[in-house]
Design a protein around this nucleic acid. Structure first.
Lengths: 359, 359
DNA sequence: ATCTCAATTTTACGCGCGTTAACTTTTGTT
DNA sequence: AACAAAAGTTAACGCGCGTAAAATTGAGAT
């Protein structure tokens, strides 16, 4: 490690010393220097169009001189309806959630709301903590992807009773204004049908104790699809828990393959992250993955994870409709905030087959 | 898409209706029901040990009955020193930043602070917006990984003058309490030395217009190392901008390889995300990557990105010392908050070579 | 110049809590 | 039992702003 003491000593409380004398500390002071009353300034910040054009100009001229910004938290403290929207995901280090969170944040901003992002980091206690913080924030609404199986359902239920909440990705029965997610059985069915049409029927590779109910629905979709096509299903349940799906896919894939557990040479993984790890296991064992001539095994995933394009070979998968899910979740929430509550509904979006080279 | 209207109509403002009559609305009410004065309750929440054991018990018993929690934002409104810490990263959909953000959040929590996470989503305007929001939050300190080249340096400078800020990952000259990052020239040197020791000297694959100064330092490290080893350096500059590094690595890798631009069959990528895309290009062109006999090309990256383990073949890279960087950044900030300002310093951590199969 | 309506200003209170000062009550010591 | 220290209570103000009501000012129409 390299340590360098930079030139010059940090002055005593530099962030205070640098404060210009003209610095505006609050709306009162800004009202004084701009020669306008505080309530009118307040009106301006809540809607610039609500003040006379000449007043607006005066305010904006003062704004350039003194660059004042109202304290957002003091604003919300007293407002009947804030513009705050909470976005909560179970695990932000998973690029899938990072991507959907980014999407949701952008939608909030576009719709004139102020998103605040939270990740439970896979920990139920932290999820509860987040919900408590959110209460303090007096949010107009919340977009919540719960941890799933590990969630404190009681806490979420109480929260949904207090704050307009739309659940997404992972469902908790009958909670919130709505649930928006994917039609998971359809995902598996789509994959099974494609794989059977183009080769051997697939085995199913999943975690023994999945984090959320989506995995169970996918398994059921797989079983149903196999049955209806008249094939014998086979499910391999990978040991391990937590959020290191790739590692589990790799380790257990290695085990399953070297123990020769799969009756066919086609494997449908419960999700892309497992598949990414599984592909490494295949690589390590010298198995050529793909549907081309001379390949040893076909591997498919589900989700269209942001990195699924960049595996070797690129992963064939069933794409979640990120756009539609996030758009629907946001729209329902905003509509409910603006026009009052709506009937609780469940929206499930179908996946689309993305054919790449792995299967 | 499947829409289902769930059984039962959502009741009028259900989150209001469900409110129990005993619901505590603020500290005043809680003080009333617990039979203790509000200032004492306030003391309790700021430090449970600061009240007599018997009163603490009474408070905690009341707490169980009425489950009240003080409003965190109202608390901070008036406190001289809050426990808020802002964590700002340039792009959260990049698992590297997601991972380091998770690490930093945990450290804050452990140290008794309340982290709030922000992502600029690659947009300079949003970065400025975030800094303004942070001011409102009256944070005790901020851990900031700036966008880099695209950052509004003036805005960051003003912010650092107002709020104790530790920069990490990407440096802006002389700003903040400290900068904590990686010794980027050393990264490249380490990689070059290893690659030269075990085979042909490497070419360098980087973006033409990198997002931050780290890339430049890595290039310089590459050039210096090649020179000192007596080899002719070669740098390929990939076209493209934005944060889709994998895609750029793939497209430009494809171009560079098919145009036969590399004088040697060893490629050191400026970062792992480029390398991940580059590996796909290799795969598509049928090139066998690795150092084993019969391989066509060696590929190495830099960063030890969370997914570098799961490429095919697993990516040889120079690992950033995530732990040390985040620990140092957090420690410096906390120390500065608790013990007053320290000399500005620059801490650069060395990378460690991670040998996998790709090179 | 008069009237009218809209915009603005004054004044005042509230949000939920931190914090201080002056008292009053509890401790536990001798 | 007397008394000092510790802890708790009351009262009051402040944070930075929203918001409401009443009084005042301004602009456009007659």
């Amino acid at each position: 490690m390299t340590t360098r003491k930079d030139a010059g000593k940090t002055p005593e409380r530099p962030w205070k010393a640098a404060m210009k004398e003209t610095k505006i500390r609050n709306m009162e002071e800004f009202a004084a220097v701009s020669g306008i009353s505080r309530p009118t300034i307040s009106k301006y910040f809540n809607d610039p169009a609500s003040v006379r054009a000449s007043t607006r100009e005066r305010i904006e001229r003062a704004l350039e001189t003194y660059d004042y910004r109202p304290n957002i938290f003091a604003m919300n403290q007293n407002r009947k309806l804030t513009k705050n929207v909470g976005v909560v995901v179970p695990y932000l280090a998973d690029p899938f959630f990072a991507e959907i969170a980014r999407n949701l944040e952008n939608r909030c901003i576009t719709a004139g709301y102020r998103p605040t992002l939270f990740s439970a980091h896979g920990e139920p206690a932290l999820e509860v903590e987040i919900l408590d913080t959110l209460r303090s924030m007096k949010p107009a609404g919340v977009l919540l992807a719960p941890l799933g199986r590990a969630s404190d359902v009681g806490a979420v239920e109480k929260f949904c009773a207090d704050v307009p909440t739309v659940l997404f990705d992972s469902s908790l029965p009958d909670l919130g204004l709505a649930f928006v997610g994917s039609d998971n059985p359809q995902f598996a069915r789509l994959a099974v049908e494609y794989l059977c049409r183009t080769g051997e029927p697939p085995c199913f590779f999943e975690m023994k104790t999945p984090a959320n109910p989506n995995a169970n629905r996918r398994r059921q979709g797989y079983l149903a699809a196999m049955e209806s096509l008249g094939h014998e299903p086979f499910v391999f349940k990978a040991e391990g828990s937590g959020w290191d799906f790739e590692d589990i896919g790799y380790r257990e894939g290695l085990r399953a393959l070297s123990e020769n557990r799969f009756p066919t040479r086609t494997v449908l993984c419960s999700n892309d992250r497992l598949a990414i790890g599984f592909l490494v296991a295949c690589y390590e064992l010298g198995l050529r993955v793909g549907h081309a001539l001379g390949c040893d095994i076909r591997v498919a995933g589900q989700d269209d994870h942001p990195f699924a394009r960049f595996t070797c070979p690129p992963l064939t998968t069933v794409a979640q409709d990120y756009e539609s899910v996030s758009r629907a979740a946001a729209d329902i929430l905003f509509r409910s905030i603006e026009d009052g509550p709506v009937d609780r509904q469940t929206l499930l979006f179908e996946g689309k087959l993305v054919m790449r080279d792995s299967a």
